[in-house]
Amino acid sequence: MKRTALVTGSNRGIGLATVIKLARHGLKVFAGMRDPETKSKNLLGSISGDDLDVDILELDVNNEASVKRCFASIESSGEKVDILINNAGIERRGSVEKCPISTFEEVMNTNYLGPIRCIQAALPNMKEKGTGLIVNITSVAGKVAASPLAPYTASKFALEALSECLAHEVLPHGVKVAIIEPGIIATDMAADITKANYDPDYPQQNRMAAMFVESLKSPASTQIVADAIVEIVAGKREGLRHPVGPDAIPFLEWRESKSDTEWVNWHNVTDEEWCESLAKDFGMSVKLSG
Rank of each mutant, 00 (worst) to 15 (best):
E79Q: 12
I116E: 00
E91C: 05
E75F: 07
P100F: 03
L113D: 00
V107L: 15
V107Q: 13
N111L: 06
V140I: 14
R92F: 00
M126R: 15
T131I: 05
N136P: 10
G89V: 06
T138Q: 07
C118A: 02
L133V: 04
V81P: 04
S95Q: 02
T103P: 02
M126W: 14
V140Y: 12
Y112Q: 11
G142E: 07
A88Q: 06
A122E: 08
E105K: 12
G114S: 11
K127A: 11
N111M: 10
G130W: 13
M126N: 14
F71M: 06
N86G: 00
N136M: 15
V140G: 08
T138K: 07
T131K: 14
V107E: 11
K143R: 11
A121H: 01
N86E: 01
Y112N: 06
G132Y: 10
M108E: 13
R92K: 14
N125Q: 14
I101P: 02
I74L: 14
P148T: 03
I74V: 15
S102N: 00
L149V: 10
T110M: 15
S95W: 05
N87Y: 09
M126P: 13
N111P: 00
S73L: 07
E79T: 04
V135K: 06
G142C: 06
Q120A: 12
P115W: 14
I116F: 12
F104C: 05
G114E: 13
K143Q: 05
S147T: 02
S76Y: 09
L149A: 13
S76T: 14
P115D: 11
K98W: 04
M126Q: 15
V144D: 06
I83T: 03
K80H: 14
